[in-house]
Amino acid sequence: MQAYQLDLSKTVLIAGPTASGKSALALELAQKTGGVVINTDSMQVYRDLRIITARPTVAEEALVPHRLYGHVDASVNFSAGAWVSDAASVLAEARAEKRLPIFIGGSGLYFKALTRGLSAVPPIPAEVRDAVRARLESDGVEALHAELMRCDPVSAERLKPRDRTRIARALEVVKATGRALPDWHREGLPPLLPRSEFTALFLAPERDQLYARIDARFDAMLDSGALEEVAALAARKLDSLLPAMKAHGVPALIRYLRGEITREEAAEIGRADTRHYAKRQFTWFRHQLPEFEWVKPQATRGWVEGSVP
């Protein structure tokens, strides 16, 4: 199979499903070009979750510059907008140092924000968010969905009635700004990377091989301290709606720590959730970001040597 040709005169974007080998590929490219690896994964931003999110190891991070890994506390409701703001600074730094920027990850929304721009929703005040979350716990998601139907029927119709996170988010926006979320989406911010400034690939292994890797990696993470990592996170008693508390494997392992299910049941839930997520990643990138070129892992062998300098 012919090696994939990569244009190294542009910023490189490497996407793909979880456990597809993206990090190793990005590391190889950064080592050979003097580039900087920039995290584009919504869970690997959290410092509390190195093992369970399969972040690069300390040794790997020491080989080449890595940015936006583990720089956010788990108590923060981090957003794509906040990530783009951080990414803009890192991108400027890489260009000033004449390093090749290599954005790598599996979060489609982050890549879409990077290359297509963002809605202009302003930050939500903490008191508004806390009030909505408190009502979510006291009144239930159905009550909030009913209220959303009155003040933002477009969002309410689009969301599933029990989608706690997105219903709370849409209601927070209305209460904080007086405007519905779709109104803000129509007033977008420009992309950080216009189409002419990047080359993008989506690493697409065969499904059966990928799912086997996912299962093996989850078991390896458990053997490497993931359970202790989740126990430390659970001890903080953070809001269960925070993104870090919903990382794949975290909810199930917390249930195990509480004695609600067995360790193997928790592991199987974590493996299954991760496989389902990988399936959604394939679908999302195919429909939302068709400019990414799909590449089989074996087609990237020798890719640096065969790329445009």
Rank of each mutant, 00 (worst) to 15 (best):
E305N: 11
V12Q: 13
V308F: 03
E305V: 01
G81C: 08
H276A: 15
I52P: 01
A299S: 12
M1T: 09
N77M: 03
E229K: 05
K279H: 12
F285A: 05
H71R: 14
L238G: 03
V58I: 05
A216S: 14
A88L: 05
P122W: 07
F218P: 04
W83Q: 06
C151Y: 02
D48M: 02
A299T: 11
Q5L: 13
I38D: 01
V90K: 05
P205W: 04
R169K: 07
M221T: 00
P125L: 07
G140S: 11
T262Q: 12
V141N: 05
Y69W: 11
R286V: 01
D239Y: 10
K246V: 08
D273A: 11
G117V: 10
R150E: 15
E264S: 15
E260H: 08
Q209G: 15
A92F: 07
I14A: 01
R150K: 15
A120Q: 11
V12M: 10
R133Y: 12
I269T: 13
A54S: 13
L241M: 10
D73F: 11
S224I: 01
A170G: 03
E305F: 11
R236H: 07
I269M: 12
A59M: 10
N77V: 00
I124R: 10
L189I: 02
A266P: 07
A120W: 04
S9I: 03
L181W: 13
K22R: 07
E265M: 13
E228K: 13
R150S: 14
L114W: 04
G302H: 09
L222R: 13
F292R: 09
H276L: 14
F111Q: 02
R67G: 00
R135G: 04
A88Y: 04
M43D: 14
W284S: 12
E137A: 14
V174W: 11
A212G: 09
L222D: 00
L189D: 07
Q31H: 02
A252Y: 07
R135T: 00
R99K: 15
A220C: 02
R169P: 00
E142L: 15
D273G: 09
V295W: 05
A96K: 01
S9W: 05
V308P: 15
A82E: 14
A87G: 09
R236Q: 14
G270P: 03
V174Y: 12
L144E: 06
R236L: 13
V154E: 15
L203E: 00
W294M: 06
E206L: 07
G16P: 14
D183R: 06
S196T: 08
I102L: 13
R47A: 14
T262C: 10
E142H: 15
I261H: 10
I102N: 04
W284L: 10
P65I: 06
P243T: 06
P161C: 04
S9E: 15
E97V: 06
A278T: 08
D7Y: 00
E260R: 09
G270M: 10
A176W: 02
K160S: 05
S79E: 13
R255T: 08
